[in-house]
Design a binder for these strands. Structure first.
Lengths: 115, 115
DNA sequence: ATCGTATATCGGCGATATGCGATAGGCCTT
DNA sequence: AAGGCCTATCGCATATCGCCGATATACGAT
């Protein structure tokens, strides 16, 4: 029942196109409630879905939907733990988002030269 | 007419709440067309809106809408240059997105200890 | 003043997102 | 077998997104 981060399991398959992959991850991060869920899980205060519901001013069904979005993007995984489901944030997926972002910034490298 | 990156002008005001700020920037990045526009502008191949339209399989009005979304998020700025508008990607805004992302990852720091 | 180019905005359409309550399914306990 | 907790899914309403064609606006050139 101890909240733990995701074991480095098989990562969710992202589009091969970096722009589409970044857009996909950004879509999952494009709602404050989902970012809060991620932060909550990363801090590993708790991991059960019920605890997340208690932590947000949203209905249980709405939180469940946000969790599904995060899961589909590979940012979160859930393991059944008896009657509960322990969710964990996939730090690797977040790091991939960072890499894709840096890859985008890198498009500016080499464009520094002026006439 | 030379495409240039944004001078470090006044940054767009982001929400003070990091979660909302990250969600806002992520919303702007949450579409492949907008990421492609950013990459195109960062590479500084060209900067006129018309060039961006030619670079994407989208109608002019649609591209204009995407540019407005990027502008509202502070990721892009446009300077009137005669009859054209020269758009530039705000590298600082992208870097702020990276910082917010790292700040989120940092929520996991200190949660590494087990009982 | 008029025309032409470049960009933004409007109106409409279908698709998707967000929210909720209600319901269904899983698993433990009794 | 029955009941209780936890989570997911369904159904619905509303709002926003993404796309386009059409129109409006701004500016330079004629």
């Amino acid at each position: 029942m101890t909240p733990r981060s995701c074991p480095p399991g098989p990562a969710a398959p992202l589009p091969s196109d970096p722009d589409e992959a970044l857009a996909l991850l950004a879509t999952a991060l494009a709602h404050p409630a989902r970012v809060r869920i991620l932060r909550f899980l990363l801090a590993r205060e708790e991991c059960f879905a019920g605890a997340i519901v208690d932590h947000l001013p949203l209905a249980q069904s709405t939180v469940s939907r946000h969790l599904a979005v995060l899961r589909e993007a590979g940012l979160v995984r859930g393991e059944v733990d008896g009657p509960h489901i322990c969710y964990c944030a996939d730090l690797e997926a977040l790091e991939r988002a960072g890499e894709l972002l840096r890859g985008l910034e890198a498009a500016a490298i080499g464009a520094e030269v002026g006439p």
